[in-house]
Design a protein around this nucleic acid. Structure first.
Length: 210
DNA sequence: GTCCCGGGAA
DNA sequence: TTCCCTGGAC
């Protein structure tokens, strides 16, 4: 994938706060729509912890509307912002200076932050070593027969952690390349023609479970 | 399993 | 028109 695409230079966001917001807004949503929502936040001058904290959830919802699930995501964003403000006085540098495992559990305790969103925030906003597993990762691994069809988030994550040196740069680049490849080729209906992983397809072809 | 939801592609 | 998208909670 790296040979095919070159470095991805991720995450596509200008600040840790913007990356955290993007991680929530992109839940089950195409990045294209997230960009519109983030542009709205910029126009409203709301890419700022303090101002976001003061903004009412209903108002925030209208601003992020293009990202879909907007009422739900407005609450989730507020939950995350509130946590940073109350626990870390709005100091993201301080927050990300903590132990990864502890911080991960803490993030998972916030309503609306699941494993993928937590790992995305830790890796891409905090530059902390954790491997992000998403729908594309699971699809690529399972379709190629590299992991069990029933494997869950943690099992897939463990597979990578056990085989890839735990450097932030590796985890960052690997996930970014998986997303790029997944987005272009490993769609719901696979388009293996021209995929950088085409030569690794199983002889039997892709066998989707019922 | 169902709900949350807009927008682009098919 | 339908289908899918860098999920998560219930």
């Amino acid at each position: 994938m790296l040979e095919h695409y070159g470095p991805q230079d991720w995450w596509p966001g200008e600040s840790p706060l913007e990356i955290m917001i993007g991680a929530v807004l992109t839940q089950n949503t195409s990045w294209k729509n997230v960009e519109k929502a983030i542009a709205n936040l910029k126009d409203a001058d709301l890419l700022h912890l303090g101002r976001l904290h003061e903004t009412r959830v209903e108002e925030l919802a209208e601003i992020i509307r293009p990202s879909g699930y907007y009422r739900l995501k407005a609450k989730r964003l507020h939950n995350l912002i509130r946590h940073v403000m109350t626990q870390y006085e709005g100091d993201l540098t301080w927050m990300f200076s903590h132990d990864v495992a502890t911080l991960r559990e803490e993030l998972l305790g916030i309503n609306g932050i699941g494993p993928e969103t937590a790992d995305s925030i830790l890796l891409y906003a905090g530059n902390l070593s954790t491997f992000v597993v998403d729908a594309y990762t699971a699809r690529i691994m399972k379709r190629h027969g590299w992991i069990d069809w029933e494997a869950d988030y943690h099992q897939i994550q463990d597979h990578f952690v056990s085989q890839v040196p735990a450097e932030v740069e590796h985890y960052n680049e690997f996930h970014a390349l998986i997303v790029r490849t997944g987005n272009e080729f490993c769609r719901k209906t696979p388009k293996c023609q021209g995929c950088p992983l085409e030569c690794y397809l199983p002889e039997s072809g892709i066998q989707e479970p019922l």
